[in-house]
Nucleic acid binder design. Structure first.
Length: 306
DNA sequence: CGTCCAGGTCTAC
DNA sequence: GGTAGACCTGGACGC
């Protein structure tokens, strides 16, 4: 019997939430263990529920500022139901208050549209997952990102009830312990992560052994951990440079830095009708958004995604 | 078949 | 502090 759960769609500051735009907020929604189902306008994602098995959920808009979360498979005990909902809220970033950003965007002709509920970036259940995925986006095409992350999920991730035997579908992203336990040969021969393999192993081991608390980076407030310090911590991780740090920070809800890479630069240039735009010009354009500069930049770039 | 480069980073000057 | 070269991989290109 599938379980059906309901979730109010409202931001922490009472602002509106555009669920479909959230479900298409950035590329990770199409990397395992997430998948967008366009025909159903839903996001399918397999979420950890330890010590119970992971569960695959489908999230879609039900109208009247509500989301419907369907969970196929065995009925969920009440406790697991509540924990799963907490995770879904986290993934949809419903705890974020975007009213400050909307106040700035409202007076910007290029971004006033965003105040109707855009700007909620989907995040993974754990910071570890977003860090690993981000490293798997560096210096390669998206097909390679999908291959590397897909292999991690397929071979190291726990299955939800009813998961297919083969393939990444129906499996949660592996824990740091599981990633750390995979041998170097797995990263080389199966994930084909190339030179990233040692980076991923080092990070997974440090997390698994308790030397590196990535999750603390996600729960720390800007007062406890200013963006500059957070950036420095991320940049110290192997395989994390300026691009990756900015991308991870976006998944952490810290938007002071712009994601400047081989996709965003030409995309922005095209939007403003130029062949190329110097980084300093882009930075100047979004400076007025202060702590939301990176979010404003990202939304300008992805406006036509929905 | 060789070169280039994709949602970069690291090391060595 | 700023800047080349190397780096796994595998498609996309040019020859």
């Amino acid at each position: 019997m599938p379980t059906t759960l309901e979730l109010p769609l409202v931001g922490a500051g009472g602002e509106p939430v555009d669920l479909w735009r959230t479900l298409n907020s950035h590329g990770f929604v199409d990397v395992p263990p997430m998948r967008v189902l366009p025909e159903e306008r839903a996001l399918e994602v397999t979420l950890p529920l330890a010590p119970a098995s992971p569960r695959t959920v489908r999230i879609r808009d039900a109208g009247s500022a509500r989301a419907i979360v369907t969970v196929p498979g065995p009925a969920l005990p009440a406790g697991q139901r509540e924990r799963l909902l907490v995770t879904v809220r986290h993934v949809l970033r419903l705890d974020a208050d975007l009213t400050g950003f909307y106040a700035l965007a409202a007076s910007d002709p290029d971004l006033a549209w965003a105040t109707e509920g855009a700007g909620r970036m989907v995040r993974s259940p754990t910071v570890f997952e977003d860090v690993v995925k981000t490293i798997c986006t560096t210096n390669c095409a998206w097909s390679a990102t999908e291959r590397m992350v897909g292999a991690l999920v397929e071979h190291l991730g726990d299955p939800a009830p009813g998961a297919p035997e083969a393939g990444p579908a129906g499996r949660a992203f592996p824990t740091a312990r599981a990633v750390a336990a995979a041998g170097e040969d797995f990263f080389r021969d199966v994930a084909r992560a190339g030179y990233r393999g040692p980076y991923l192993i080092a990070i997974a081991r440090a997390v698994a052994e308790g030397e590196l608390d990535l999750e603390a980076l996600g729960s720390a407030s800007p007062e406890q951990l200013p963006d500059e310090e957070l950036a420095a911590t991320l940049l110290a991780l192997p395989g994390v440079g300026p691009y990756a740090a900015a991308h991870i920070m976006m998944t952490l809800g810290r938007y002071s830095r712009l994601i400047l890479d081989s996709w965003t630069r030409p995309t922005y240039a095209k939007l403003v009708g130029r062949r190329s735009v110097p980084d300093r010009s882009i930075l100047r354009r979004f400076r007025r958004y202060g702590p939301y500069a990176g979010l404003a930049f990202w939304l300008v770039l992805t406006r036509d995604w929905v």
